[in-house]
Simulated scan of single mutants.
Amino acid sequence: MSRKELSQKDKMLAGDWYSCLDDALEVMRQRARNAVHQHNTMPPDARGHMGPQLADLLGHIGQNCLIEAPFHCSYGINLSLGDLSYLNAGCVILDSAPVTIGAGTMLGPAVQIYCAQHAKDPVERAKGMEIALPVTLGDNVWIGGGAIIIPGVTIGENAIVGAGSVVTKDVAPGTTVVGNPANPL
């Protein structure tokens, strides 16, 4: 099959340029919206660690992971949670590419992880053209509240990202970064 014959979903998953305005991708996003709606509106004692539709949607869930409500993800299928990972209230993960969250990693409230990079040309952007780059958080990472992680970033194990930081480049293991853009302390 040539690149031209690939579906927009296949292009997205392959890390190629694709149109996010594709009907099949919209079906996938609607499934995710339904799952996060159930998760976000269930009583906490009935929901447990996460709503059942959300648990069915996510790509991988380790043991004893907890996602507080409200939560949002764009597809869910590309999200992988390691054992004992914790996502506090208000986290947003736009997982058009793989997002891997390591074991023991904690995300503070309102952390945002973005995988899509939109076309810079306004004509192409209006066509919904984007490319998705993976985001990886190693084991035992702590992301402070309100931090933003942009497409293609890897944060090494045991690293800390200060609250409100904007992470624009990889973070070495065991490093603490703060600011906009985030830099080592």
Rank of each mutant, 00 (worst) to 15 (best):
residue 135 V to L: 10
residue 120 K to T: 15
residue 16 D to I: 13
residue 71 F to C: 00
residue 60 H to P: 08
residue 133 L to H: 05
residue 157 E to A: 13
residue 72 H to A: 00
residue 24 A to L: 09
residue 123 V to H: 11
residue 17 W to N: 06
residue 154 T to W: 02
residue 144 G to R: 00
residue 44 P to E: 13
residue 34 N to H: 13
residue 49 H to M: 08
residue 92 V to G: 04
residue 170 D to L: 11
residue 182 A to R: 11
residue 89 A to G: 01
residue 74 S to D: 15
residue 142 W to H: 13
residue 75 Y to G: 01
residue 4 K to E: 15
residue 131 I to A: 03
residue 149 I to Y: 08
residue 54 L to D: 05
residue 37 H to K: 05
residue 24 A to S: 14
residue 26 E to Q: 10
residue 82 G to F: 03
residue 67 I to F: 06
residue 95 D to S: 09
residue 103 A to Q: 12
residue 155 I to S: 08
residue 66 L to K: 04
residue 93 I to S: 00
residue 60 H to C: 14
residue 146 G to K: 03
residue 124 E to S: 08
residue 122 P to M: 08
residue 9 K to M: 13
residue 89 A to C: 12
residue 57 L to M: 07
residue 15 G to A: 09
residue 68 E to I: 09
residue 175 T to S: 12
residue 19 S to K: 07
residue 72 H to D: 02
residue 170 D to H: 14
residue 23 D to N: 08
residue 171 V to G: 04
residue 1 M to V: 07
residue 19 S to D: 00
residue 40 N to T: 12
residue 46 A to W: 09
residue 76 G to M: 10
residue 8 Q to W: 14
residue 133 L to D: 02
residue 143 I to C: 08
residue 102 G to E: 01
residue 11 K to E: 07
residue 90 G to A: 02
residue 57 L to F: 10
residue 75 Y to N: 11
residue 18 Y to W: 07
residue 130 E to C: 15
residue 133 L to S: 01
residue 67 I to P: 03
residue 21 L to S: 01
residue 28 M to W: 11
residue 68 E to A: 14
residue 153 V to I: 08
residue 131 I to R: 06
residue 114 Y to R: 13
residue 109 P to H: 02
residue 102 G to D: 01
residue 116 A to W: 13
